[in-house]
């Protein structure tokens, strides 16, 4: 569904990605793990269009999307969340979710003036959908609040709800468990599992091994900007190269 071929990206003199290749199969949860500085977040940013890679290719649904703008990917139902939650701070929770609806009139100044009934009808339907998503992540009581009052875990849930509003085929999750209290991690795992059963493909960059082992069908290990190996969680956990990558060959 998504394939990454020998992607490279340098920041100054440092090669964050040094020829990384990956295959993400449809309908699975693929976890990307690796020590700090392995290039996981850069890889995600390159796939999602936030960072333009120096070389290599990203193909999504058979099309080359290397360096495509994030909004193009989002309109093709590929959406990402952020490592540090980036909620829109002056929009209410409802508006945060509603923003992710896919509708061309979101960018039209004249539509609401010329076709008020149609715009209102669409918006009402979308509000209904957004409220259902907020109910699903348990934030419906805070729909009118702004995100600054949310806990770290609630912000992740809000990001997830926002991503779901897009009706995504593929969701890139950048450390969803980072800064989230353990009980909330279980809630997140539950919701991601449900969505997976509904057919959403996930890519998960994560350090929390409980989450990785609970969710992933396939685990890819990255080290020094390259893909090291991939396999099931058990295979990866027992592989000598992975242990070496994490511990720097000290043992």
């Amino acid at each position: 569904m998504l394939s990454v071929q020998s992607l490279t990206k340098k920041f100054g003199g440092v090669a964050a990605l040094a020829g990384c290749s990956l295959e993400i199969p449809e309908g699975q949860i693929t976890a990307i793990i690796g020590p700090n500085g392995a290039g996981k977040s850069t890889l995600l940013n390159c796939i999602a269009g936030a960072v333009t890679p120096d070389g290599g290719h990203v193909r999504y649904l058979g099309t080359d999307v290397t360096g495509a703008k994030p909004y193009i990917l989002a309109r093709n139902r590929l959406v990402r969340t952020f490592q540090i939650s980036r909620e829109l701070s002056s929009l209410s929770l409802l508006e945060n979710v509603l923003l992710a609806r896919q509708n061309a009139s979101d960018e039209s100044f004249f539509d609401p003036i010329l076709f008020p009934a149609r715009v209102r009808r669409q918006q009402d339907a979308d509000i209904d959908k957004a409220m259902k998503l907020l109910v699903r992540v348990g934030l419906e009581g805070l729909a009118d609040a702004t995100p600054n009052i949310l806990s770290g875990g609630q912000k992740k849930l809000l990001e997830l709800a926002r991503a779901l509003m897009l009706e995504p085929r593929m969701v890139l999750l950048d450390e969803p468990a980072a800064g989230v209290a353990p009980p909330m991690v279980q809630v997140l795992i539950g919701i991601i599992k449900e969505l997976h059963q509904e057919g959403v493909t996930f890519v998960l960059v994560e350090h929390n091994m409980d989450m990785v082992s609970a969710l992933s069908d396939q685990v890819c290990v990255m080290a020094e900007g390259k893909d090291l190996m991939s396999g099931s969680f058990e295979q990866v956990a027992s592989d000598a190269r992975v242990v070496e990558a994490y511990l720097g060959g000290v043992l």
Binding site: Y71, A74, V79, R80, F82, R86, A100, D106, E107, R162
Partner: peptide, 9 residues
């Protein structure tokens, strides 16, 4: 960046 990630040009 968030607006763009959610499909806004």
């Amino acid at each position: 960046l968030v607006a763009s990630s959610l499909g806004k040009n």
